[in-house]
């Protein structure tokens, strides 16, 4: 059920400016909330639970979070991430540094709804509702002193909770210097790519940058300021591991392979030219819209054949 040690986990984080109690503040202020959350410094156990169809995915991690980065410990490994870098001491130690001059786009589609003061884990906190039009997209319980999000619930398009991220054993710390990179791990530098294979905008998500991917593939990273995903376009010759226990996701456009985890969802499909893999922390209704705007699974793909064999 859980995929501890296999998944790398950097969820979207949030924080809040102290004393923001005026209801219906604008998206500009939500950005401040999120930016300040990245600055929060704390240690905690983070439990992430996601509901995908009939599958519940849960992970439980020890997290050390500081300005812009975090260290996550799992059973047998740890991962440090931040500022476009990631160093992981898992089964295969690895380091990645992404070179980009671009930043996450401004938040346009979300606004802060009601803000109330609450007590959470004996701490003073703000309960912030994040609205996407009339839909409540998230509820955040934000620690007043540290700005950390103690509890985040994300809702699907039908207003049901599909992900809960909660901190326990929460220990806020004062600022201390960011740990240096681990020198024992070799680091791979990932360059920017000029490709324009995929559109600049997908279902309200803006493309941030495109990078060279493994084995001649390319990675397009999209964000709406709150959630984000990457689409990897990969040669058809390449085998993509990690979908052995996948589920099938069927939309109007065709059949996709899907591996849901507590923190994110991974999707794989192929059109006549390429394999595609999408990885991101996006809500299910956004996922459907995004897939609808991406190249559809090819008619000649084995998936289609399989599907037609079953259903005519």
């Amino acid at each position: 059920m859980t995929r501890l040690g296999r998944s790398v986990l950097v969820g979207t984080t949030f924080a809040v400016a102290f004393g923001v109690l005026t209801p219906a503040v604008t998206a500009g202020e939500l950005e401040d909330i999120i930016t300040q959350a990245r600055e929060a410094t704390y240690n905690a156990t983070r439990v992430t639970k996601s509901v995908w169809g009939n599958q519940i995915e849960v992970t439980d991690q020890l997290v050390e979070h500081w300005s812009g980065g975090e260290l996550v410990r799992t059973n047998s490994s740890w991962t440090v991430s931040g500022n476009g870098r990631l160093v992981s001491m898992g089964e295969v130690p690895s380091g990645l540094v992404f070179l980009t001059a671009k930043t996450t786009p401004e938040i346009q589609r979300y606004e802060v709804g009601s803000v109330t003061t609450v007590k959470h884990m004996h701490r003073s906190a703000l309960r912030v509702e994040v609205m996407e039009g009339d839909l409540k997209r998230a509820t955040l319980i934000v620690d007043e002193r540290s700005g950390a999000v103690l509890l985040a619930e994300t809702f699907n398009g039908q207003g049901r909770v599909f992900r809960t991220v909660s901190l326990s054993d929460f220990k806020p710390y004062r600022m201390y210097p960011e740990p240096e990179e681990m020198s024992s791990v070799p680091v791979q530098v990932i360059m920017h790519s000029d490709s324009d294979l995929l559109p600049n905008e997908l279902a309200g998500y803006q493309i941030v940058d495109v990078f060279q991917g493994p084995g001649g593939s390319e990675q397009s990273f999209y964000s709406d300021g709150l959630f984000g995903f990457s689409v990897f376009a990969i040669s058809k010759r390449t085998v993509i591991d990690g979908f052995a226990d996948s589920m099938a996701l069927v939309t109007d456009d065709g059949l996709y392979e899907m591996v849901p985890t507590a923190q994110d969802v991974r999707i794989r499909w192929a059109d006549k030219d390429r394999n595609f893999v999408l990885v991101g922390d996006i809500p299910p209704d956004h996922l459907e819209e995004i897939l609808a705007d991406l190249p559809a699974p090819g008619r000649d793909s084995m998936l289609k054949i399989w599907w037609h064999k079953l259903f005519g």
Partner: peptide, 9 residues
């Protein structure tokens, strides 16, 4: 790779 890119503030 996605996690690393997504960690750009």
């Amino acid at each position: 790779r996605h996690a690393a890119v997504a960690s750009v503030p």
